[in-house]
Simulated scan of single mutants.
Amino acid sequence: MSNGTGPATGRLEGRLAVITGASRGIGAAVARRFAAEGAQLVLIARTVGALEELDDAIRAEGGKQPVLVPHDLRDFDGLDRLGASLHERYGKLDILVGNAGILGPLTPVGHISPDIWQEVMDVNVTANFRLIRSLDPLLRLSDSGRAVFVTSGASSGLNAYWGPYAVSKAALEALVRTYAAEITKTKVKANLLSPGPIRTMMRAAAFPGEDPQSLRPPEAIADLFVALAEPACTKNGELVEAR
């Protein structure tokens, strides 16, 4: 069985992985690749139907039946309960992939309503903080806990009208690097991955005039996630850019 850009070799066999934003795009591609590599998955997304379709695909490809968690990441108390539930059921967590994110409006900063600003920060930054807070103890119980968070080149803040998204990704990078600095003496490692231009719904919304067929599909970068998630990974606090 294979998925993504290369043959599956069991690099994640026996590993338990939580993936957010798993129902489509990069999250779904990573889920299928992780399943092909032998991982047991806990898949989080808001859309039940899309999660069920992904479940069907994973099992059709020979992967282990995933645990589906329909959940809005802005329900922060629910993220706390996730940690408790995983501890009770599995006793540890090996991999966390913080992939979920929203674009927000592409408009001048002065035109952004406070509630929309807060929504982007909640999903792109605070939810990942709450995931770390809830799941760090479980990652420390793994023999090689790994955390991977999806960022963007927009974090540079050099592009006009990208305010909420750019600021949220810059904050996420600072959060993950801080966390990585705090776990240097543990078996846990945390890194950032910047996918670059990928054929996703978010990309289409941001660049409506772009030909999606000119972009790489999400599957093209799935193996980078495997490399950062497997026990052999030695990186910590780094930003890996897909080339």
Rank of each mutant, 00 (worst) to 15 (best):
A205Y: 06
P114E: 06
A171L: 11
A29G: 14
V69Y: 07
G83N: 09
R33D: 10
K169L: 09
E238D: 11
D143G: 01
D55P: 08
V123F: 01
I26T: 07
L106G: 00
A204K: 15
L172K: 10
S155P: 02
P164Q: 05
P208L: 05
L54K: 09
R74K: 14
V150S: 01
A242R: 13
P208I: 08
D80H: 12
V123P: 03
T178K: 01
A29M: 10
I198A: 09
F34Q: 08
C233A: 14
F207E: 14
E61G: 15
P66H: 04
F129C: 01
R203P: 10
A60W: 02
V240T: 15
A242V: 10
M202F: 02
L54D: 08
I116P: 01
D80E: 12
L215G: 06
E173K: 14
D72T: 13
L138F: 01
A232P: 05
T9P: 02
T200Q: 04
A84S: 12
T234V: 06
L103A: 11
P114Y: 06
E182C: 04
E52N: 08
P105N: 00
E61M: 15
G163A: 15
T5E: 10
H87A: 14
S23L: 07
S144L: 00
E219D: 14
A166C: 14
L103C: 00
V42T: 13
G21I: 06
